[in-house]
Write a protein that binds this DNA or RNA. Structure first.
Length: 570
RNA sequence: GCUCCCGUAGCUCAGGGGAUAGAGCAGCGGAUUUCUAAUCCGUUGGUCGGAAGUUCGAAUCUUCCCGGGAGCGCCA
């Protein structure tokens, strides 16, 4: 089971084109823009007619004449300037739903070429709380990784922690002079943040402290055992908190090679860049110039400061070097915000200059805005801590359940609140085009109406409710017969799952999958209103049960690819 | 100054060469002895920021302009 309607139609259209003496590879078929015209459409006649200087409608007629739809569809209709419109046969759709219902992959074909992909995402900073700024990277990166894996690619997820850098001088100084042990035990990351801020404030007025903090940093970098041990504690305590959040979100990483991991390689890397003529010394710093790239002509990439220190770009290049040696990947995906576009342009250009041909992708995304349309912040102007945000999501979902189903057992309420609340936050991210700055709204993401996680989860729950009432699970899915418009509309949607999932990776767009799932849930709800299932009899009842079960499986699989769980009841 | 991203219904957003531009919310009008109405059906609402261009065809591609956001050698 890997043939989608689109693939089947494309194959047949190509045969028709070949029979007309036209280039078969031009026979692309796409889902119809408007279902009034049919289920699928081909624009090939218009394109080819222009090239051949022929009348498009005549050419369309000729193609239609040669088109053999078999039991898949009848002769295509010709409309407008030369559209070919295809309508799937209900019998064929019914049979395909039967096959789909037994397919573990829900009709999603595996990628033709199995790629090795490293996905670099989340990357929070040690000694600082994770905040909303990390949420998009984390959720997007996880969803893209899941989808790539499902399509058969070999994926390595790597959390490139911010565990090295100038901030540690301040934290180390604070740790030694201002540490509140009790506070550290209560909330380690909060205490680290306090230390950083406090030292940062004192530094402004006390040059001696500024100097001392710098010295702590230098000692750390030189491998001083005491500072190294404190640093390790900072990392461990921070990671423990991050892991709690990742656990809650159901996200795991194959690797967590932070910036510190690459530090030992930086000096040699810069020397190599100089020796190879990739970089040059300018104003005391080591830079890579891109004089041949107009957009970067006046924007060199610094890899070593005039004081000998290394930079963000240096670490990123060392990271590429390491990943190349260890994994020889086909692609590396960086899921980080749009403001870093210039940085990645530079790093990618430098990597090519170093001779690496790996496909490097910066998967950029926009910002999250508050209700005031400005960058989302707390009232005091700080970043919103991620943990508090996730807790609130669960609390709000809990309140909804409490209102709707107060009699539900405590254990189940808790579970559902988590699944619905966290699902809502994730889905709100993923249903949005990644480049848009979007406005964070609790009421919208938790609404049962519209393109939201609860709406989709509810569709799943409705199906499960039917099977609970039925008392048994489904037997063999044979002799499916779908005739009602609402049945067929839903069935055709389900068959498109295998068409949609692969497109997500073309431009890294999980929102395409989200849109599809929303349309599917919508089609299901409409079917649910129009077609009784348990009250139906004979073949209709059986067919509808299969349709329901397949809907549930597609919704569950689709949401799982987005990292969203489904409850059995809500 | 240079570069990148965004501008679509009152609001939040889809659609990124194809037909009469869609959805949710809000508004208006309906459907409930329920397989969970936590839903569904109907309806009002748009010079797709503006102007040129490419094309049989442009919200979509190109250029310029306007408006908003961001980034641009020694932070990450």
């Amino acid at each position: 089971m890997s043939t989608t309607p689109q693939a089947a139609l494309t194959q047949r259209l190509r045969a028709a084109l070949a029979a007309c003496g036209l280039p078969p590879e031009r026979g692309d078929v796409v889902a119809a823009a408007d279902t009034r015209f049919g289920d699928y459409q081909a624009n090939a006649a218009m394109v080819l007619a222009k090239e051949a200087k022929r009348n498009p409608r005549e050419l369309a007629a000729q193609i239609a004449e040669q088109f053999d739809g078999g039991d898949l569809c009848a002769k295509p209709e010709i409309a407008g300037p030369g559209f070919l419109n295809f309508r799937l046969e209900p019998g064929w759709v019914s049979r395909r739903v039967g096959i789909l219902s037994a397919d573990a992959r829900c009709g999603v074909p595996e990628a033709e070429e199995r790629l090795k992909i490293i996905v670099d995402f989340s990357s929070p900073n040690i000694a600082k709380p994770m905040h909303v700024g990390h949420i998009r990277s984390t959720i997007l990166g996880d969803a893209l990784s899941r989808i790539a894996r499902f399509l058969g690619h070999e994926v390595v997820t790597d959390n490139h922690l911010g565990d090295w850098g100038t901030q540690f001088g301040k934290v180390l100084y604070g740790w030694k002079h201002l540490l509140d042990r009790a506070a550290l035990e209560r909330d380690p990351v909060a205490e680290m943040t306090r230390l950083y801020r406090e030292v940062n404030a004192i530094e402004q007025t006390d040059p001696a402290v500024h100097k001392a903090a710098r010295e702590e940093l230098v000692k750390l970098q030189q491998g001083d055992p005491e500072n190294r041990a404190i640093w390790q504690q900072l990392v461990d305590l921070s990671w423990a908190e991050f892991e709690e959040i990742y656990g809650q979100l159901g996200i795991r990483f194959d690797e967590r090679l932070g910036e510190s991991f690459y530090d030992p390689a930086l000096a040699a890397l810069v020397e190599k860049l100089l020796a190879d003529g990739v970089a040059e010394i300018s104003e005391g710093a080591v830079c890579v110039f891109f004089r041949d790239v107009p957009a970067l002509a006046d924007k060199p990439c610094l890899v070593r400061k005039s004081d000998g220190g290394f930079l963000y770009a240096t670490t990123d290049l060392a990271t590429i070097e390491y990943r190349e040696e260890r994994w020889e990947p086909d692609a590396i995906w960086y899921v980080t915000g749009a403001p870093q576009q210039l940085h990645f342009q530079q790093v990618f250009s430098a990597a090519r200059r170093m001779g690496y041909g790996t496909k490097l992708e910066h998967i950029a995304f926009g910002s999250i805005l508050g209700e005031d349309h400005k960058l989302m912040k707390t009232r005091s102007g700080d970043n919103v801590p991620l943990r508090a945000l996730l807790d609130e999501a669960v609390t709000r979902a809990r309140a909804m359940i409490e209102e709707k189903n107060p009699e539900m057992p405590e254990e189940e309420k808790k579970h559902i609140a988590r699944v619905v609340g966290l699902g809502a936050v994730k889905y709100a991210e993923l249903s949005q085009h990644r480049m848009t700055d979007y406005v964070f709204s609790w009421s919208k993401m938790l609404s049962l109406q519209g393109n939201t996680a609860p709406y989709l989860q509810n569709a799943y729950v409705r199906v499960r409710s039917i099977f609970r009432k039925l008392g048994t699970e489904l037997g063999a899915a044979e002799n499916i017969s779908l005739t009602e418009p609402a049945e067929l509309a839903l069935a055709k949607k389900l068959l498109q799952f295998g068409e949609v999932v692969p497109t997500v990776l073309h431009e890294f767009r999980p929102n395409l999958l989200a849109n599809y799932l929303f349309e599917t849930a919508n089609a299901f709800h409409a079917f649910y209103e129009a077609c009784p299932v348990l009250k139906a009899e004979g073949p209709a009842r059986h067919s509808r049960l299969v349709l329901c079960d397949t809907t549930a499986r597609v919704l569950r699989q689709g949401l799982e690819l987005l990292g969203v769980e489904v409850p059995e009841r809500m």
